[in-house]
Design a binder for these strands. Sequence first.
DNA 1: TTGATATAGTTAGCTAACTAACTATTAAGC
DNA 2: GCTTAATAGTTAGTTAGCTAACTATATCAA
Lengths: 172, 172
Amino acid sequence: MLQLRDLPSVEVLKKFAARYPVADVTAISSFLHLLRVASDLSIALDACLSRHGLLQGRWWVLILLMREGNKTSTPSLLAEKAGVSRATMTGLLDGLERDGLVARVFDDEDRRRLSIRLTDAGQQKLDDVMPDYYARLRACMAGVDENARQQLEATLMNINAGLVAFNTEVRS
Amino acid sequence: MLQLRDLPSVEVLKKFAARYPVADVTAISSFLHLLRVASDLSIALDACLSRHGLLQGRWWVLILLMREGNKTSTPSLLAEKAGVSRATMTGLLDGLERDGLVARVFDDEDRRRLSIRLTDAGQQKLDDVMPDYYARLRACMAGVDENARQQLEATLMNINAGLVAFNTEVRS
DNA sequence: TTGATATAGTTAGCTAACTAACTATTAAGC
DNA sequence: GCTTAATAGTTAGTTAGCTAACTATATCAA
């Protein structure tokens, strides 16, 4: 994702809007700030996870497994839920298996299938990471009250609904 | 950035909060939705730019150059403002120069330095891309009124301020 | 003035993502 | 039942980012 260190000032936005009249200045500003804060959050999350020897992809796989009652899933399902390709999931599972955090179990009923199981070591890793992650996240969001959080989620839902328009709208 | 296709339901969040008492459920929910919408926006932006033969990194370089009065900057400054390493900027400029969108101009005063100039073709590329991008963005944000946009920016500023806590807070 | 240090840009090699193609297995249609 | 198509997982090769190291140039201090 784009890093966007140097967001445009109001003057710059106006200059661009003068050349491109379709520009919606507050829309652009909100959009860029959203991307900027999200990428900063993502980088902070990476830093937190890396102190525990994890990256976002592997961490998310462990969480997805813990969500399941039997701490078990399949590579395809995990790939879909994590939003990565099956090929990428193979790589993530290779790393997690090497570290002993998950186990590949062959399925006798459908021999194409694997079961991926969260090991005790994997659960222990989550028990180390999650309190640290949650405490940091709580501190980060401490300045945003419940009302603002609800408004944020509502606005994000509206933007999400507008994404269809972003992708399909023909050129002005 | 993490894709997060399958965000946790309220039940899942409560289950995790029961095991990890430090969890702040609405903070987690807001955080994950923010990352999710931002990555979807980033992907939509990529799709828009790729129709014009651009990617986020190169597109941003062109914009940074257009912002300058003389349409000129240096690789180091561009790298800093775009939030990428100087090495990455070298690669971005290689591609842009190959496509004739920017020109490398050697500096006679300081022979370590290069000037990077937006060419006429580069300006033309922006004149093609920006109206399309701005029109899509306007449509995407149409469902978010001015008040919500202001609140969004204010909340994002508060989260941004909290990022320091995310990075420095010691483990609970 | 000249030797150490800092700066600008590039190159080399690494990583984690991707797509496309491949193997093995199962399901479905005639 | 056999052939075709679909599915599960992996492998191979590409990409855009990174860090570290390198070359060339400029600056500073003894």
